[in-house]
Design a protein around this nucleic acid. Structure first.
Lengths: 125, 125
DNA sequence: ACGTTATCTGAAGATCCGCGTAGATGAGGA
DNA sequence: TCCTCATCTACGCGGATCTTCAGATAACGT
């Protein structure tokens, strides 16, 4: 990563640069930013997105249901669910041979909702 | 992409499989899912995350301010901002030599807030 | 017009990540 | 126990993407 500070230019000549210092202090550090980014990253994939919205609609679905709903091979769904589960985006429950997945909590549901509002494809229901 | 439907198994034996059909109908199609995923994908990167949270705090920052705030070379910041601007995540305003960036709308701010709540690092202020 | 500062762009290399295939594991039913 | 069904795991390839460097562009002051 290239140099950053030594090129004191724009920031310093601004009497408000103290404000920048404050902002800098409040910016998430690598650890926290990593956690935050990780959550978004998991939602940022077409296949995963479809699956999550399917769960948002259905509440709870097993692997084969998801596979049928989003038209993706079951093995691939399983892999995807492992990822999402590992990061706490979804929860699961076993019932006989079936494993049912659901969105982990309200925050995830809110993220999905807000995002759909943003993109405009609300789908008034 | 491997076969999906021909393996009629789990789904069919469920009298509720009609429910799956309904879910399938409500799952975003490729176009919409792509748009949704794209937004999340843009937020799902450590560097971009830091920048966005900096903007969330500061309201408006120019490239060099951002560079100082998140400790990233200005050229890199510029590239990142181009991405975010192209997808409508941030807006910008020119003032002399400086270009000031800001979060595009309330939805983006909500996404950032909700995500921070989810991860638990709220930072009560 | 010239030099300086702030920002932008293009291209290349390294890295990461999703994807499918094939086989393993676990749970039920006969 | 044997067989089937649902799910899981290991692995390798192909493709997208992040990062950086070097140079281009735009705006301002003198």
């Amino acid at each position: 990563m290239g140099r950053v500070l030594p090129l004191d230019g724009c920031v310093g000549d601004d009497p408000l640069s103290q404000r920048v210092a404050l902002v800098r202090a409040s910016v998430p550090d690598d650890a926290e930013a990593g956690t935050l980014a990780e959550l978004f990253r998991l939602l940022g994939d077409v296949r995963r997105t479809k699956i999550l919205y399917a769960l948002l609609e259905a509440g709870e679905l097993c692997v084969c249901d998801i596979s049928a709903a989003v038209q993706v091979p079951e093995a691939s769904v399983s892999q995807t669910m492992r990822l999402l589960r590992a990061s706490g985006v979804v929860g699961n429950r076993r019932e006989g041979r079936r494993v049912y997945y659901r969105l982990a909590d309200t925050h995830v549901r809110m993220l999905l909702d807000v995002c759909r509002e943003h993109t405009g494809h609300e789908g008034i229901r």
